[in-house]
């Protein structure tokens, strides 16, 4: 089982120091052990402040644990330099956020191109890939539109296209349907499922029972602990 893990957390603690002089400490994760298997569709559920997003950030090499180890494809990333982590985020991971987080001054096409720009993909190749992805999410004809000119559902579809730009192995979605009505949310969920079927490992943090149902495995997290796990 362990050999199949794309990302693995071993006794991971994440403690934030907040407030003035960092006197207030928040234990977001308290000794979490978790292995995400290659190709699976995992839903992480739990109330606000339970540590879901922190878990996602650690899996995506956006953050380092305070204690414990995070193994990405067997390599400990906890002590890696920031440039090496950036490389993993760029080539191996795709992020989708609740509030879409598109660059407001870039067109839909420009936003999808962005990860490829940082990867140094040549322009011609980049444009072809970005257009292919926009076609796949049904927005090929809106490539010249700025985020402000797109609906919430459309923006999230652009964000998914962006997340898939550099052929990632792992797609991490933080409440991807949280800001969308149920019908639009359904469309986004279908896109995530399709992506998973094509072989990309998907981890979704959500409140939405429908999203959780679509996942093959579900985890519940509370107060920084994984309290319940179930396979679909």
């Amino acid at each position: 089982m362990r050999d199949e893990a794309i990302v693995e957390l071993l006794g991971v603690w994440k403690i934030y120091h907040m407030g003035r002089r960092g006197r207030i400490t928040v234990e977001a994760l308290r000794g979490v052990d978790l292995a995400v298997r290659r190709g699976e569709f995992l839903a992480v559920m739990g109330p606000s402040g339970s540590g879901k997003s922190t878990l996602l950030h650690l899996m995506g090499c956006l953050d380092r644990p305070t204690e414990g180890k995070v193994l990405f494809e067997g390599t400990d990333v906890s002590t890696m330099r920031s440039a090496a982590l950036a490389r993993i985020r760029n080539r191996r991971v795709g992020f989708v956020f609740q509030s879409f987080n598109l660059s407001p001054n870039l067109t839909a096409l420009g936003n999808v191109e962005l990860p490829m720009v940082f990867a140094g993909v040549p322009r011609r190749e980049r444009l072809a890939r970005a257009r292919e992805l926009l076609s796949r999410v049904g927005l090929r004809e809106r490539e010249r539109h700025l985020p402000a000119e797109l609906s919430g559902g459309e923006q999230q579809r652009v964000a998914i296209a962006r997340a898939l730009a550099n052929f990632p192995d792992l797609l991490l979605a933080d409440e991807p349907t949280g800001n969308l009505d149920s019908e639009t949310g359904h469309g986004v969920l279908s896109l995530l499922s399709e992506t998973n079927v094509e072989g990309v490992t998907v981890v979704v943090v959500t409140h939405d029972p429908e999203v959780a149902t679509a996942a093959k495995r579900r985890l519940r997290i509370r107060d920084g602990h994984i309290v319940e796990a179930s396979d679909a």
């Binding site: 985020r89 992020f95 956020f97 660059s103 940082f118 990867a119």
Partner: peptide, 8 residues
């Protein structure tokens, strides 16, 4: 966001 999508 740029950092999340892999900007160094």
């Amino acid at each position: 966001v740029m950092k999340a999508v892999g900007a160094r």
